[in-house]
């Protein structure tokens, strides 16, 4: 403020004084509230931020020198592109399954009377609560050569010999599809609950057939939840480790396993960290897009 302004009444009234005081109060309040988040921030910084930063640094170093070798190797070595391609294929298959099965389930559940919807949702939420390792184990015993699935298929005469359903890509896709399905159903259900069904009725009264009304009115309204759920399933599938490791029989090397093997089998921290950094960038990019459709909090099925 210019010095000559101090004396003039219009520049410094009790009102501006109060305003300055109020701004100061807001600042103090903000600082206090920020302070409350500090312990949580410290936890996340120390045990997530620092580890990721270290991996980032490591991905550019070898023998104490800067190098881009770990990244160029990712382009040259075919094992990386094979693993990436497999990861994309499996994730697309799992996402497609979740979309095809999940949409009708959410659709029906969202229109059921309250009590029936609650029962149906329980069926969706129970697997959601159950440990991923336990669900993977369940599929391991169901899909084995003398398991329930092969027994059932043979007794109804669809097949004569047990199929190889596990320790391969098939088993991985089946197990992951089961695990991922609730992640599509729950956000889509929440989205569909908010759709006003009288809009569909209105379309009908204007002459649209039920099918036409569904595709032109209902489906577009459910699309944001549908796409968000699908994207969520995809991005979570891409990061899977446990299920492919157990149901894939050591041959289904998805990206997460590639990283793990580089560390545990080959002690190649540089290679592991460069894959991890690229992978992380892609995953966070997808989440960034996802966040435009769906609050990240929905990840928990809230």
């Amino acid at each position: 403020m210019a010095p000559q302004a101090i004396g003039t009444d219009s520049q410094f009234t009790p009102q501006t004084g109060r305003r300055v005081e109020a701004t100061r109060e807001i600042r103090r309040e903000r600082l206090k509230m920020f302070g409350l988040t500090v312990p949580a921030l410290v936890m996340v910084t120390l045990f997530l931020g620092v580890p990721v930063a270290w991996l980032f640094g490591l991905s550019f170093y070898e023998d104490g020198q800067f190098t881009a070798r770990h990244f160029t190797r990712m382009l040259e070595d075919s094992s990386y592109s094979r693993s990436l391609w497999l990861t994309v294929q499996i994730s697309v298959a799992v996402t497609a399954f979740a979309m095809i099965v999940g949409y009708p389930v959410s659709y029906v559940l969202s229109q059921l009377p309250r009590r029936w919807a609650a029962i149906g949702l329980t069926f969706v939420v129970i697997p959601f609560w159950t440990s991923l390792l336990v669900r993977t184990y369940a599929w391991l015993i169901l899909l084995q050569r003398k398991g329930v699935v092969n027994d059932a298929l043979m007794s109804i005469g669809i097949i004569d010999e047990p199929l190889y359903l596990v320790h391969n890509v098939t088993g991985t896709i089946i197990g992951m599809s089961h695990i991922m399905l609730p992640f599509l159903i729950l956000p889509l259900y929440a989205n569909m609950k908010r759709i006003d069904l009288s809009l569909v009725k209105a379309a009908h009264s204007l002459g649209a057939s039920p099918t036409f009304a569904f595709w032109t009115v209902y489906f577009p309204l459910s699309l944001p939840g549908f796409l968000a759920g699908a994207l969520l399933v995809f991005v979570l599938s891409v990061g899977f480790y446990i299920t492919p490791a157990i149901l894939g029989g050591g041959r289904t090397i998805m990206i997460s396993m590639l990283i793990e093997r580089n560390v545990n089998l080959f002690f190649e921290w540089g290679a592991a960290s460069s894959v991890a950094i690229v992978f992380l960038a892609v995953v966070l990019g997808i989440f960034w897009i996802l966040n435009r459709f769906l609050a990240v909090e929905r990840l928990m099925g809230e």
Binding site: L55, E260, A272, F279
Partner: peptide
């Protein structure tokens, strides 16, 4: 930032940690 542990693939958290 505080929701990041939900988003970062666990294998990355694991080796970094």
């Amino acid at each position: 930032l505080l929701l990041l542990p939900l988003m970062v693939p666990h294998i990355i958290i694991a080796i970094g940690l």
